[in-house]
Computed example of a mutant assay.
Amino acid sequence: MNLNDLPGAEIILPGLSDLHSGNSNTTGALLVAIASTRLTEAGLDIPKYYLASEPELTLYALLQEEREDAYPYYNALLNSLNSFCNALEISYRYNRN
Rank of each mutant, 00 (worst) to 15 (best):
T40W: 03
E56R: 13
N75F: 07
S24Y: 05
L19F: 10
Q64V: 05
G15N: 06
D69G: 02
E41V: 03
E65G: 03
R38H: 10
N95V: 06
C85V: 15
Q64F: 01
E10P: 07
D45T: 12
L39Q: 00
E10T: 12
P55D: 04
L81P: 00
P72M: 02
E10I: 12
R93M: 08
L57I: 06
R67L: 13
Y94E: 08
G22H: 09
L77G: 01
L88F: 09
L57Q: 13
P7E: 09
S53C: 11
T27E: 08
T37H: 14
G22K: 08
E68M: 04
A35W: 07
P7T: 06
A9R: 04
A9P: 03
F84H: 04
Y60A: 00
L51R: 01
Y50H: 07
N2L: 15
A35Q: 11
L31N: 01
D69R: 13
L88C: 06
Y50E: 10
S21W: 08
A70D: 03
P55H: 01
N95T: 10
D18V: 07
T37I: 14
G28E: 01
A29C: 11
T26F: 10
P72Q: 01
Y73R: 02
Y49L: 14
S53F: 07
N4K: 12
Y71P: 00
N82G: 09
Y94S: 08
A35I: 03
L31Y: 02
E65T: 04
S80C: 08
T58E: 13
D5N: 14
Y74L: 11
F84W: 05
A35C: 09
S83D: 10
V32A: 13
P47S: 15
E65H: 11
T40M: 14
P55W: 02
D45I: 12
A9T: 05
N75Y: 11
Y74I: 05
P7Y: 06
A70I: 02
D45A: 12
D45M: 04
S53W: 05
N2S: 08
L81T: 12
V32S: 04
A33P: 12
N25F: 15
L77D: 00
Y71S: 13
S17L: 13
E56M: 00
N75S: 04
L30T: 02
L31F: 09
A9C: 05
N2Y: 07
L57S: 14
P55Q: 07
T26E: 04
P72A: 01
R96L: 08
L77N: 00
D5I: 14
